[in-house]
Amino acid sequence: MFGISPLGWLHTLGSLPAIPAMLYMFARYGRIVPRSVAGTIYLVAMLIGAASVFLVTHQPAGFVIGAVTLLLLLVGYTAGGIGALGRAARYVETVSLSLTAFLLMLPTVTEVLRRVPDGHPFVTSLDAPLLRGAQAGLLGVLVVGLAVQIVVLRRSRPA
């Protein structure tokens, strides 16, 4: 179904819980909060997805996205514990984890549009205008979202 291998299904289903966890945290907190139940779910699902992408991808971009995602998860989930960063830790944490959300949604949207509906996908080429528009929309959400998050962090009092 959808041309996905058993290992591909493990990758897809393993990383899928990150999406509702991410959406919940953005709606509730305006950012990904690592030290929360949803943050833990997000981390585990993202680790499964980012680590397993190396086994399923056939594109060099997939390897880059997986490696960068793992690096950003490490930075985002450890920044809060580095006292030397001071108030900057919240900025590093927020920006890093928001970038992981973008790197989750970029291939997700791409793969959904290239595989759904089964047998007659919405797009058949990586250059399709619909796909390019969806990717540009995600980039726009990232830029605006990061700007809003940074403004909110600047206006908030130190923890």
Rank of each mutant, 00 (worst) to 15 (best):
M1D: 08
M1E: 09
G3P: 07
I4M: 11
I4S: 06
I4R: 07
S5K: 09
P6T: 10
L7T: 14
L7V: 14
W9L: 12
H11V: 04
L13R: 12
S15Q: 07
S15N: 02
L16I: 04
L16W: 00
P17Y: 07
I19Q: 04
I19M: 14
P20F: 06
P20I: 09
P20K: 01
A21L: 06
L23I: 11
L23K: 01
Y24K: 02
A27M: 09
A27S: 13
R28L: 09
Y29E: 09
Y29W: 11
I32E: 03
V33E: 13
P34N: 08
R35C: 05
R35K: 11
G39S: 06
G39I: 00
I41T: 14
I41L: 14
I41M: 12
I41S: 10
V44K: 06
M46F: 03
M46W: 00
L47C: 12
I48M: 04
I48Q: 07
A51V: 13
A51N: 04
S52M: 05
S52D: 03
F54H: 07
L55V: 02
L55S: 08
L55Y: 09
V56R: 09
V56D: 08
V56L: 12
T57N: 03
T57I: 04
H58N: 15
V64I: 14
V64L: 15
I65G: 01
V68R: 05
V68Y: 00
T69V: 00
T69E: 05
L70M: 13
L70V: 07
L71A: 15
L72H: 03
L73K: 03
L74C: 14
V75Y: 03
Y77H: 15
I82S: 04
G83N: 06
G83R: 11
A84S: 14
G86D: 07
R87C: 01
R87E: 08
A88D: 04
A89N: 07
R90H: 09
R90Y: 11
R90C: 00
V92C: 10
E93T: 07
T94M: 10
V95F: 12
L97T: 06
L97H: 05
L97R: 09
L99N: 06
T100V: 11
A101Q: 04
F102L: 14
L103A: 06
L103C: 05
M105H: 07
M105T: 08
L106M: 14
P107S: 10
P107H: 02
T108F: 12
V109G: 07
V109K: 02
T110A: 07
E111S: 13
L113Y: 09
R114L: 13
R115G: 00
V116W: 06
P117D: 03
P117E: 12
H120K: 13
P121K: 08
F122T: 12
F122K: 11
F122P: 00
V123L: 03
S125W: 08
L126P: 01
D127M: 11
D127C: 07
A128E: 10
P129T: 02
P129Y: 02
P129K: 02
P129E: 00
L130C: 10
L130Q: 04
L131P: 00
G133R: 03
A134Y: 04
G137M: 11
L138C: 02
V141W: 03
V141L: 15
V141C: 08
L142C: 03
V143M: 15
L146A: 08
L146E: 15
A147W: 12
V148K: 05
V148M: 05
I150K: 13
V151A: 15
V151T: 15
V152R: 15
L153A: 06
R155Q: 10
S156F: 01
A159M: 10
A159C: 01
